[in-house]
Design a binder for these strands. Sequence first.
DNA 1: TTATAATGATACTAAAATAGTATCATTAAA
DNA 2: TTTAATGATACTATTTTAGTATCATTATAA
Lengths: 135, 135
Amino acid sequence: MMKLLTRDTDYAVRALIFIGKEAKRENRMVTVDEIVRALKLPRALLRKLLQALSKSKILNSGKGKRGGFSLSKDPRKINISDIITIFQGPVDFTNCLLRNAPCPNRKICRVRKKILSLSRYVDSELKKITLASLT
Amino acid sequence: MMKLLTRDTDYAVRALIFIGKEAKRENRMVTVDEIVRALKLPRALLRKLLQALSKSKILNSGKGKRGGFSLSKDPRKINISDIITIFQGPVDFTNCLLRNAPCPNRKICRVRKKILSLSRYVDSELKKITLASLT
DNA sequence: TTATAATGATACTAAAATAGTATCATTAAA
DNA sequence: TTTAATGATACTATTTTAGTATCATTATAA
């Protein structure tokens, strides 16, 4: 099946929405276990995802007791394209390979041109889907 | 890497463009070997792809000497969405799974809503990319 | 009528991406 | 100094993508 969001991206977005909500209500760190209870995601996997978001500066993290995660910036400045980029690489539909080598027609190919502009449109739309717009 | 077209779809489109051109010039069947020479695609693979296109009624085929393939319809009526559907399944970005089971929030999920409308837009744009528009 | 040149059907292997788990190290607070 | 949290990292399983090989069937032409 064709998909734009893989499971990692999907789960990460769900978790971010939850963290955003909780952090707004009470000003505090949200732990992995809270998210697991609320969203029923696999714990080990979620930990890995949140660690990646933390490395990518989307989340702040605190170790030790009272530790956890919180958004590192305004939810209006976190968008789906960013999250996809972290887990799936940049939103770019043009691969243009011929037997694992770059296709010689890259420059002139009309298919490429059309797919490229579609790709740019999709990315710009995904950038408009912010965490704030989902909450 | 993220991709909208897999290799199969990509190669199939290239082959269709070639068949369209040749068939226009001379009214005849185009063989796999001609396409392989012109486009440098792996023969065994191309055969499999053309057979699939033939099964899906995009191509007519003729067996035996003087056999080969030709477009089964007006190139203005063959579009990229059709070809994607054959090799990758329908253009639909919403998968909505939670641990391989349907996500319980399908109905109300805001992410889904946005991705669905984006998915529909992409499909409609891909339907506009016809074989004729690429030739 | 038979050799040949074409596609049809199908089975198979390899590599890469996706999906998911487990464990030890580090750290901050009570 | 115990405990509750994340950090780093290594590992396995499944699915999708990528690619090959072979025998069966059929239409034409010599």
